[in-house]
Structures are given as C-alpha cells and as structure tokens.
Simulated assay, not measured.
Amino acid sequence: MTIQGIYEVCVGCREPISLIQYWEQFGYRIGQIGELSPESANKLYGVNSSLHSIRLYHQDADHGLIRLMVWGNPTNDGLKMSLMKAKGNRWATALTADVLNILNHAEEAEKAGLPVKYIYPQWDVIYNKERKMRPFAEPAIGVREMVLLQPLTRQFFFQRFNYNVPNYGKINEISHFKTSQITHMGIVIQDDSRETFRFYEETLGLLRVRNEEETTYESSETARQIFDLQPNERFSVTTFDDPRSSKSDWRAVRSGRLYIVRFPESIKIENCLEKAQPGCLGMSLYTYRVTEIEEYLQRVKASSAQNLTEIAYNEFGEQSFSFVAPDGYFWTLISHLQKRM
C-alpha cells in the first residue's frame, strides 16, 4: 500500500466562477469537472445536496491541487475569517517568489472595504535555527511568511531567502502571484493522549518528520500574531509527510505535508469542527490518493475513526471513501489506480 502527500484542498462554494478566476492568479487551471446527485453525495460526504465539482491543476503537480465543491444546498457558511486558534481550523500554504505582491493586493482589498484579514510577512528561520548569522556580513537564510484570510480561503504564503528545497514547491513563474501548488496544509487539535498522531502514522502510513516542536508565547512573535497566543500559552507542531520524503535530510523533503498544531487540553479554544467539513463553504476537506484502497478501508475500519463510509465513486469517477479521524477532521481517500470510465 502507498499514500502520497495531501492531494487536494477542497473549497465549498455556491458559485465557482469567481473562485476559478481567483485561483488562476496563483497558477491553477481547470482540470476535471464532475457531478453527484444528492443521494450519491450523501453516501460519500454525508451531505444531502447536489454537488458539482471542479478540480484545478497546477502545472504537473500530483498533489496540492484545489477542488471547488459547488453545493446546491450548503450546510453552513464555514470558517469564514475566524481566528486560527480553533479546532476545525484548516489552511493551505504555498511557496511564492513575491510575497510583497500578495501583500499589496491584501492592503488594497482592505482599503476597498473587501472582507479580508492578513498578517504582514514575518521573518522566520525554518532550518538550522541554532546558526547565528552576522547581519550585513552574511546571507540571511530564512523565510518571510504571511497569512491571508478571506471568507472562502485561508492561506499562508512563504518566500525563501538564500536557500532551496527542490521537491518542496514548484513555482508557476507565469502566474500573477508567482506561487507553487499547495505545499502543506494545517489543522489544529487538542489531544493530550497523542492518539491523533498514531492514527496518521500507523493507520494512514504517513512519515512523521517534525515531532512536537514546541512554540510558546515568549518564544515567537509570529505565533502570537497568527494563533493569538496569550502569556504562558503554548502549542506544539508535528508534521506528517509523503512516505517518500526524508526524516534526516531537509533538502530531500517533499511537499504535500500535513501540519498538526496541537494545543494542550488545558487551554480553552473554540471548537469549529462543524464549520470545516463537506457541505460547508470555504476550506472544508482534504484528500489523499492511495493505492490498494480496499486495504486502506480495512485499516481505517480497525482504527478509532468514526463515520466511515463504504467505497463509492466520487464526482470524478474515482473510487473513494470518507471518515472522521480521531481528531474530528473529515477526510476522503481516493484510489490512485482505479477510475470508472
């Protein structure tokens, strides 16, 4: 059995035209189109509504795609621009060669009175944090990372400076915002038992790369802004990769990563899980592609996952099944090999 990096970020909407135009600015293009009846959508996604979906491709990427899910009868308005410190929070991150261009648009959108929230690009050192550089004498090696929230999209963007990771994001140079496919996706959980981690590692077979790296209010100005950390609060970050990625060599890691931000159960955070599942508007579902989907179904059945469906054809004619992971997040697995003609 094999699993790859996260395949799609699915965005619920009432009409797709404006979103297609939006994602085209980030280098995406229309790929596949499909439909499901209310009965079939209810069988696979638990939503009694007609569904029309559009899969958006990004160059030749085999992961980090976008699926627009146009619901005839949406369940609710989704996460909209709620705080990041909430269970149910989903977001998508992409590499860019021009983060200031994205910032320019965010500032102009705000001036125009459009619904938008953003955090100015923050400097961060991702790798080799212990290294001390000499300003104005040596290259500054790190990233500028910004957050952009809109009613139907929750995005992070990062721009690298003075280093490269060849398999972690391929920029579409002719796109307006010079961005890559989605390189990683995030969720927020509260699970002191760490059962969630065992599920993603042992049941789904993902590669655990970063393990419980702790961030505190005192240690990170960026985390204070993004996750509204208060004094004495903290969270840890654990990441799960495509099994072909690398634990030992950061230059060999692959995109398609799942970021899990875990807050201790002692910290009070909002529960928004009902606003981040199929049927909701906005970013409401992630998918993985797998081989031997029947074996994955049996593995998930043997786990503590809930609301497991049987294998059914999705709107693109691909064998799929859905479930709710132990952390409360809804997932769909898609067969990499089998497709109904």
Rank of each mutant, 00 (worst) to 15 (best):
residue 171 I to T: 06
residue 142 G to V: 05
residue 36 L to Q: 07
residue 100 L to E: 13
residue 220 S to K: 00
residue 106 A to K: 02
residue 146 M to V: 07
residue 96 T to E: 07
residue 256 G to Q: 02
residue 258 L to K: 01
residue 218 E to Y: 02
residue 37 S to V: 07
residue 29 R to E: 12
residue 314 N to Q: 06
residue 302 A to W: 03
residue 30 I to Q: 05
residue 313 Y to H: 14
residue 303 S to T: 06
residue 29 R to G: 12
residue 147 V to R: 07
residue 176 H to K: 15
residue 36 L to G: 05
residue 1 M to I: 05
residue 326 P to V: 06
residue 251 R to Y: 04
residue 245 S to C: 02
residue 292 E to C: 06
residue 49 S to P: 09
residue 42 N to A: 15
residue 250 W to Y: 10
residue 68 L to D: 01
residue 280 C to M: 09
residue 69 M to W: 02
residue 161 F to C: 02
residue 295 E to A: 15
residue 221 E to C: 01
residue 151 P to K: 10
residue 63 H to L: 08
residue 92 A to G: 13
residue 255 S to E: 10
residue 299 R to N: 05
residue 156 F to D: 11
residue 73 N to H: 13
residue 18 S to Y: 14
residue 263 F to E: 04
residue 97 A to Y: 07
residue 98 D to N: 10
residue 71 W to T: 02
residue 339 K to L: 11
residue 217 Y to T: 00
residue 149 L to V: 13
residue 47 V to K: 00
residue 217 Y to A: 00
residue 139 P to E: 07
residue 111 K to H: 13
residue 167 N to D: 10
residue 185 M to R: 04
residue 306 Q to D: 03
residue 236 S to R: 10
residue 283 M to L: 14
residue 162 N to F: 04
residue 71 W to F: 12
residue 287 T to N: 03
residue 107 E to T: 09
residue 339 K to N: 10
residue 223 A to H: 00
residue 305 A to R: 10
residue 238 T to P: 08
residue 51 L to G: 01
residue 41 A to K: 09
residue 145 E to S: 11
residue 169 G to K: 00
residue 148 L to W: 14
residue 182 I to Q: 04
residue 83 L to K: 06
residue 70 V to A: 03
residue 51 L to D: 00
residue 194 R to E: 08
residue 39 E to A: 15
residue 78 G to K: 05
residue 27 G to M: 05
residue 101 N to Y: 07
residue 236 S to G: 07
residue 227 F to P: 04
residue 234 R to Y: 08
residue 176 H to Q: 15
residue 152 L to Y: 10
residue 176 H to R: 15
residue 326 P to H: 03
residue 341 M to P: 15
residue 337 L to M: 08
residue 154 R to N: 14
residue 262 R to A: 11
